Simulated assay, not measured.
Amino acid sequence: MSQKPLYKITFLNAGKIYELYARRVAGSALWGFTEVAELVFDTREGVVVDPTEERLRDEFAGTRVLHLPMQSVVRVEEVERRGQLAIRDAATGEKVVTPFPMPPRQPPR
Results as ranks from 00 to 15, higher is better:
residue 19 E to P: 00
residue 19 E to K: 14
residue 19 E to Y: 04
residue 21 Y to M: 02
residue 23 R to H: 13
residue 23 R to Q: 06
residue 25 V to S: 08
residue 26 A to Q: 14
residue 27 G to N: 07
residue 28 S to N: 10
residue 28 S to A: 14
residue 28 S to F: 09
residue 28 S to Y: 07
residue 29 A to Q: 12
residue 30 L to S: 13
residue 31 W to V: 11
residue 31 W to R: 13
residue 33 F to T: 13
residue 34 T to P: 02
residue 35 E to G: 02
residue 35 E to C: 12
residue 35 E to I: 08
residue 37 A to S: 15
residue 38 E to N: 05
residue 39 L to E: 10
residue 40 V to P: 00
residue 40 V to H: 00
residue 41 F to T: 03
residue 43 T to I: 07
residue 43 T to C: 05
residue 43 T to D: 10
residue 43 T to A: 14
residue 46 G to R: 05
residue 47 V to N: 09
residue 47 V to Y: 10
residue 48 V to I: 15
residue 49 V to C: 01
residue 49 V to R: 12
residue 49 V to H: 01
residue 50 D to C: 15
residue 50 D to H: 09
residue 50 D to G: 03
residue 54 E to I: 09
residue 55 R to W: 11
residue 57 R to P: 07
residue 61 A to P: 02
residue 61 A to N: 15
residue 62 G to L: 11
residue 63 T to F: 05
residue 63 T to S: 11
residue 63 T to E: 07
residue 64 R to I: 02
residue 65 V to G: 08
residue 66 L to M: 14
residue 66 L to E: 03
residue 66 L to T: 07
residue 68 L to K: 10
residue 69 P to R: 15
residue 69 P to Y: 10
residue 70 M to R: 13
residue 70 M to G: 11
residue 70 M to E: 12
residue 70 M to H: 11
residue 71 Q to F: 08
residue 71 Q to S: 14
residue 73 V to M: 06
residue 73 V to D: 01
residue 74 V to P: 12
residue 74 V to D: 11
residue 75 R to L: 14
residue 76 V to G: 09
residue 77 E to V: 06
residue 82 R to W: 00
residue 83 G to S: 05
residue 83 G to E: 04
residue 84 Q to G: 00
residue 84 Q to C: 01
residue 84 Q to D: 04
residue 85 L to W: 07
residue 86 A to P: 01
residue 87 I to R: 02
residue 88 R to G: 00
residue 91 A to T: 12
residue 91 A to E: 07
residue 91 A to L: 15
residue 92 T to H: 04
residue 95 K to R: 14
residue 95 K to V: 12
residue 96 V to N: 04
residue 96 V to Q: 10
residue 96 V to I: 08
residue 97 V to G: 01
residue 98 T to N: 08
residue 100 F to D: 06
residue 101 P to R: 11
residue 101 P to Q: 10
residue 101 P to L: 12
residue 102 M to C: 03
residue 103 P to H: 07
residue 103 P to D: 04
residue 104 P to F: 14
